[in-house]
Amino acid sequence: MEWYEYVLKRLLLFVPTLFGVSVFVFYLVHLVPGSPAVAMLGVRATEERVQEIERELGLHEPLPVQYVDWFSGVLVGNLGQSYSFNGPVAPILADRFFVSLELVLLTLLVSLSVSIPLGIVAALNKNSAVDYFSMGVGITGVSVPTFFSGVVFIAIFAVGLSWFPVSGYVAPTEDLVENLRHMVLPTLTMTLVAVAVAMRMMRSSMIETLGEEYIRFLKAKGLRSRSILFGHALKNSFIPVITVIGLQFGYMLSGAVVVEQIFAIPGLGRTVLQAVLQRDYPLVQGSVLLLALWFSAVNLGTDLIISYLDPRIMEEEA
């Protein structure tokens, strides 16, 4: 199978998943006990207002009709009206997407540039001080609740030392330096978890790779340890790490909810939370759909990268 065929196949398989996701998101509103309109407006809402909202949401149509209506809207970028923001959902989400994107990309950048070297060094020096240190970071990283580390970072670096602002957001287009200053603590908070997972995977994957017979064969061929490490072992051991980073992305988006809330950053995560708290169902649907799409697309992307790097994967799935 050629690579492009594999890509096509994976894209085709992606369609039913997307369909399922859209059905789930659509159906969310109907999981609400009683009328979603009442849930949104509260019990003291007037009958006319409830009726109006129900009409707006098309709640009296049969479900499949409602779905088709809703989904055809989604396809052309019409995600409905947000009640708490008093405006269409799509443009709100578009703004916020880029805010979260910056946070996530910064986190990826920082966490990978720490975790990959640390994982490699730990693998090469098993049971050394570096190894134990990395293990410690690993276990702490996955065990500290994001909201706790965020709060502690604020206490130390914002309140105590006043190095960085406590919270808030400045758009990079407005003032890039201020933007980055505001992003330091949120990024640091998210990085802690991301570093832990990627580093542990890098370490164990590198150890496993170095034990492979082909590494011995490379040595027997006269390759220097450095070419073996960087020319062969790194690529082989990085492949499973890419998968983990893809899955990790889901935790990052989850973490973004907490971090954006703590640091008052107007990103997608905070939007979901506000929408849930306000019972703004069109906004819940829109933001959840966008986040799921984002996560799935990243996972699909990592799968495709892996299949490109390791041709055996295509064979296995064929």
Partner: peptide, 16 residues
């Protein structure tokens, strides 16, 4: 001096 190992399936780097 060159060496050939027992299992040809694991002697070659799979990703090159």
């Amino acid at each position: 001096i060159s060496m050939v190992f027992q299992d040809p399936n694991t002697s070659l780097d799979p990703v090159y």
